[in-house]
Amino acid sequence: MSRRWIAALACLAALVALACDGSGSAAPRPSDTPRPGDPRVLTALGDSITAGYGSCLVLVSCARNSWSSGDGLRVESVYRRLRVDTPGLRAYNRAVPGARAAGLADQARSAVRDRADLVTVLIGANDACRGDVDQMTPTATFRDQVDAALAVLRRGRPKARVLVVSIPDLYRLWQVGHTEPRAVRAWSRGVCPALLADATSTAPTVVARRARVRERIEGYDGQLRAACRAYGTRCRFDGGAVHRHRFDLDQVNALDWFHPNAAGQGRLAEVAWRASGWAG
């Protein structure tokens, strides 16, 4: 191998390492000295979306680009927006790629250990994105699992403020992507098969399958709203703002054509921030 190729590979490795800095990390971000009365810790809970999966150069978690807790320069995250007025704030990302609502309580326990004052929750995409529609988490079960996680927070951090975010409209992803051959090829490798398998098919059974996934996600959003209302005044639901966001393919990565890229994470942060009530 020539020296030129060795140098090129070394540069590529360095770029990947830089892009994925913070991948899967739960370490607190560097912070200034907290001021009395300011929130001290934000903890992000959820799945691969909140983990920033696929928002760097490769398909791995990239917490620096997370819409919630990211501290990188490419995404004006909720955390970075909060830091303007709360310079002592630290952030932890406890989101787990592939997580479903069943695993949310364990993440909530991590938030309690973090002594979180602010918590963001985005969960449900993987409950719908199963191998088949019959494997999707039942709506009632989903609600029980979300309630269990919120109960952990309420017991362990009763004064924490919680932002529950609606699930992005995955059906829209199929709508805007099923005519893009690169997206269809990526999806055929097992990306959210309950919704995206046979992406170009118009067979009645396939159309009905997509409709069932769409309805289930809408059902999950309704339960997230109700669970937050039951939690009390310290929980705020985004009112469906994230689900209503009309994203396009330029906001998803060009590797799996599913997860938000840095631009998509930034837009998600903007929508969630406006709905959070945390400004000022």
Rank of each mutant, 00 (worst) to 15 (best):
V207F: 06
P138M: 08
D238K: 12
G37E: 13
S31W: 04
V119E: 10
R155C: 02
A263T: 09
D248I: 10
C192M: 11
R80C: 04
R210F: 05
R244C: 02
R35C: 13
F237S: 01
G240P: 05
R225C: 00
P204C: 12
V121G: 11
R74M: 12
L196F: 06
L82H: 01
A208H: 09
P30Y: 08
L196R: 02
R236L: 02
Q175M: 13
V162Y: 01
S31G: 14
G264T: 10
A101F: 03
A128S: 15
A17D: 10
N253A: 14
V84S: 05
A208S: 11
L195I: 10
R189K: 13
L45A: 13
F142N: 03
S69F: 01
Q251N: 10
H243S: 10
L122P: 05
P260Q: 07
S23H: 08
R40K: 15
W273D: 05
V41S: 08
A125W: 03
D85C: 08
F142M: 06
V207G: 01
G98A: 12
L122F: 06
G46N: 09
C11Q: 15
D117I: 13
G72H: 01
D144R: 02
A102T: 13
P39K: 13
A125T: 12
A44R: 13
P36V: 12
P97M: 10
V191A: 14
A230Q: 00
A116S: 15
R94C: 05
L12S: 14
W273K: 07
G190T: 08
A63M: 00
C228K: 02
V58P: 04
G22Y: 04
P181W: 02
G177H: 09
A160V: 05
L104M: 06
A8V: 14
G52H: 04
D71N: 14
V213D: 03
A95D: 15
D47R: 08
V75H: 04
P34E: 09
A26P: 00
V184D: 04
V206F: 03
A51P: 03
A226R: 02
R80W: 01
G103H: 08
G219S: 13
T43K: 06
R40M: 12
W187N: 05
V184S: 05
S25T: 12
D85V: 11
R4S: 11
S25R: 08
Q145T: 04
G232V: 03
T139C: 01
N93P: 10
R83M: 07
A194V: 11
P158H: 07
H245E: 12
N93F: 00
A254G: 15
Y53C: 06
